[in-house]
Simulated scan of single mutants.
Amino acid sequence: MEARREEDYTLRQRICRKICNTFNKQLPDKLYLKLLYRVRMNQKLDLKNPKTFDEKLNWLKLYDRRPEYTMMADKYEVREYIKNKIGEEYLIPLLGVWDRVEDIDYDNLPDKFVLKCTHDSGSVIICKDKGTFDIKSANDKLNKVLSTNYFYPSREWPYKNIKPRIVAEQYMVDESGTELKDYKIYNFSGKPYMIQVDYGRFTKHERNLYDLDWNYIPEEIEYPTNPDHKIDKPQNLKLMLELAGKLSQGIPSVRTDFYNINGKVYFGEITFYQEAGFARFSSDRFALELGDKIILG
């Protein structure tokens, strides 16, 4: 009997995946998210009485669609938001912004720089040596991203109406000299609650979690944690938490990312839906704990 139930469930998953892939843009958002949740999480999405962190994030995708979220998710427009909210001094220097890859002025870019698209997540291209940089490969990747709307795969509403553009920013590294650690602060209604630190993203991606006093939290969200990997409490943690509170005022759930470089804090990005609302938690208890922090309107 148990084997039969498992077989039936797997079949339902396959049907849901087929429907999602075939009718992605045609399906209403609510139905699409229910089907996708079944595929991604092996569970039914409860939107009537959401309790877990993931369930509530998917509820927010549907029912908390404030116009300003589009600007906050736009990697170019958010700069003006940061300037007005906390100050221009927290912005990584901008080297250029273009509508098309053909317009990128590579000749006038420095030897090291970072390219990213304004309307998605993950399209970062890092140039550490312009002399060996593969411009064609970078342009091909950027062109592909520019032609997509990041809203449709997971229905992350803030991305739907962002104008696709390309920005170049100054290349930055922290004290490691090789990477840039993110200090990702989870905020609920303007109150910081937890800090996530990602490291080894280009080697072995791991992720440690800390409370506001920098005590290690022995839980995982999507990536493995490593208690033996010691990350010192950042010198400017108090300032980061203050800035995070200002940027998250009035928002049920939002993650604000910062960098700490040579004793100076820089803004990274604003993320409304951690792992697009499909994060794997190490325990149900932890998923419910974070879910309890989100107050739905």
Rank of each mutant, 00 (worst) to 15 (best):
K264R: 15
I82A: 09
L11E: 15
M1T: 12
C20H: 04
F133H: 08
P28A: 11
D120I: 11
P227D: 08
L91S: 12
Q13I: 13
F53C: 10
Y216S: 03
D129I: 12
D129Y: 04
V167Y: 11
L95C: 07
V265D: 00
G291R: 01
S123D: 13
Y63C: 09
Q26C: 09
M41D: 08
N42V: 05
F281D: 00
L62A: 02
C20L: 07
E242H: 12
F258E: 03
I185M: 06
D54P: 02
P218S: 15
L142C: 09
R5Y: 10
K116A: 12
D120E: 15
Y210Q: 04
G200N: 06
I15H: 07
D64R: 11
Y210S: 08
R5T: 04
F53N: 02
E169T: 12
K230Q: 12
E175N: 09
R14G: 14
N149T: 06
E175L: 10
G177H: 11
K44E: 15
M1I: 14
N236Q: 13
Y106L: 03
D64G: 08
D213W: 04
V101H: 13
L180R: 01
K181D: 02
S123C: 13
K264T: 10
Q249E: 15
R280F: 05
G245I: 05
Q26Y: 06
A244H: 02
R4H: 11
